[in-house]
Computed example of a mutant assay.
Amino acid sequence: MRIAIATDAWSPQVNGVVRTLQAVRTELERQGHEILIVSPDLFYSLPCPTYPEIRLAFATVADVGKRLADFNPHAIHLATEGPVCLAARRWCLTRHFPFTTAYHTQFPDYVSARTGVNPEWIWRYIRWFHAPAEAILASTPSVAATLEKHGLAGVRHWGRGVDLATFSDCTVADPALARLPGPIQLYVGRVAVEKNIEAFLASTHPGTKVIVGDGPARASLEARFPEAKFLGPLFGDQLAAAYAAADVFVFPSRTDTFGLVMIEALACGVPVAAYPVTGPIDVLTDQVGAMHADLDVAIATALTRDRQICAAYGETFTWEASARQFLSALVPLDQDKAIAA
């Protein structure tokens, strides 16, 4: 099957959307499917205001459409709500081609956190963008309920997975981290205002706070919380070693739709502390973590969880299952019409 995926999130960006798309593409190709990625790196782009790591592409309908037409896909998926996917969306609609979309991030909340704009204004755009889709893919029941609450129908489940070759049986701990005063409290992810990292850094549970990742808020947070250890981005075995050194993984975000890093930590045997919000409430159980409105309470409780139970639970999230769900939600194009177009 030839599957075209348009996305405004792609490498060198480092985030859950990119990692999800890359992992699912790899799994689908392993199964014999042919995948086209239409991404910002194919076009002239400019840095996004307030978040320069994200590039906004000047992708015209003609340019995006030519790439899609040349590929002659059996199905088209629009992964994000930015310029590349806007162009792909218009190209599909003018030809009456079906497509699916996905709601990866709490875009209205992110925009509100950065600009103060009323999130309901952004929801008008979200409804407009996703309404023509044959299916809207969502990672958790809570996200599906949010979309339905805002008037969007046809939501399909699309779960997430863990790279078990890297984040399973994590026994080799980063020696530098392991020597720090415990318990080691780890955060992995973008260092940005919408991730609510300040709440973690301001928590009072004893031990050492470690931040893995980068983003626009890093410099200010490093200056305000000099006792925390900021390691920058880590990948592969280095990231697994950081997980292995941690006693608890702290996920302070209140706006994530899932939280891939939570299941990576769990697969490495690290319990998770979080707020009881969308993402954690769909992923965590009482055996593998703790959720509480007071993050200090969540951290203290999570530290009592059994690491072997955490690892076994984390390993139940596979990219094979995620790719299967993605594939089942796709809507095939009428190939006679597609070829004629």
Results as ranks from 00 to 15, higher is better:
Arg179His: 12
Gly182Phe: 05
Pro183Ser: 13
Ile184Cys: 04
Ile184His: 07
Ile184Glu: 10
Gln185Glu: 14
Leu186Gln: 09
Tyr187Cys: 05
Val188Cys: 07
Gly189Thr: 06
Gly189Cys: 09
Arg190Asp: 11
Arg190Trp: 05
Val191Lys: 02
Val191Tyr: 05
Val193His: 08
Val193Arg: 13
Val193Ala: 14
Glu194Asn: 06
Glu194Asp: 15
Lys195Ala: 10
Lys195Trp: 04
Asn196Leu: 02
Asn196Pro: 00
Asn196His: 13
Ile197Met: 10
Ile197Cys: 06
Phe200His: 07
Leu201Trp: 12
Ala202Trp: 01
Ala202Cys: 01
Thr204Arg: 15
His205Ala: 14
Pro206Ile: 11
Pro206Lys: 11
Gly207Thr: 04
Thr208Ser: 15
Lys209Pro: 09
Val210Cys: 11
Ile211Thr: 12
Ile211Glu: 11
Ile211Phe: 12
Val212Phe: 10
Val212His: 09
Val212Glu: 12
Gly213Pro: 04
Gly213Trp: 06
Asp214Leu: 00
Gly215Met: 09
Gly215Tyr: 11
Gly215Glu: 13
Pro216Gly: 15
Pro216Asn: 12
Ala217Leu: 09
Ala217Tyr: 08
Ala219Asp: 15
Ser220Met: 00
Glu222Tyr: 00
Glu222Gly: 03
Ala223Asn: 14
Arg224Ile: 00
Arg224Cys: 01
Phe225Asn: 11
Glu227His: 14
Glu227Gly: 05
Glu227Thr: 14
Ala228Trp: 10
Lys229Ser: 06
Lys229Pro: 00
Lys229Ala: 07
Phe230Glu: 09
Leu231Pro: 00
Gly232Phe: 05
Pro233Glu: 15
Leu234Cys: 08
Leu234Glu: 12
Leu234Met: 14
Leu234Ser: 06
Leu234Phe: 02
Leu234Lys: 12
Phe235Lys: 08
Phe235Cys: 03
Gly236Asn: 01
Asp237Lys: 10
Asp237Ile: 01
Asp237Gly: 00
Asp237Tyr: 00
Gln238Ser: 15
Gln238Val: 00
Ala240Gln: 08
Ala240Ile: 03
Ala242Gln: 03
Ala242Pro: 01
Tyr243Pro: 01
Ala245Asp: 05
Ala245Ile: 02
Ala246Gly: 00
Asp247Ser: 06
Phe249Pro: 04
Phe249Thr: 04
Val250Ala: 13
Val250Tyr: 11
Phe251Cys: 12
Pro252Glu: 14
Pro252Met: 11
Ser253Arg: 01
Ser253Lys: 02
Ser253Gln: 05
Arg254Lys: 15
Arg254Thr: 15
Arg254Gln: 15
Arg254Asp: 09
Arg254Met: 12
Thr255Ala: 15
Thr255Gly: 06
Thr255Pro: 01
Thr255Tyr: 12
Asp256His: 10
Asp256Val: 07
Asp256Tyr: 03
Gly259Pro: 05
Leu260Ile: 12
Met262Tyr: 09
Ile263Pro: 04
Glu264Cys: 01
Ala265Trp: 00
Ala265Val: 01
Leu266Asn: 07
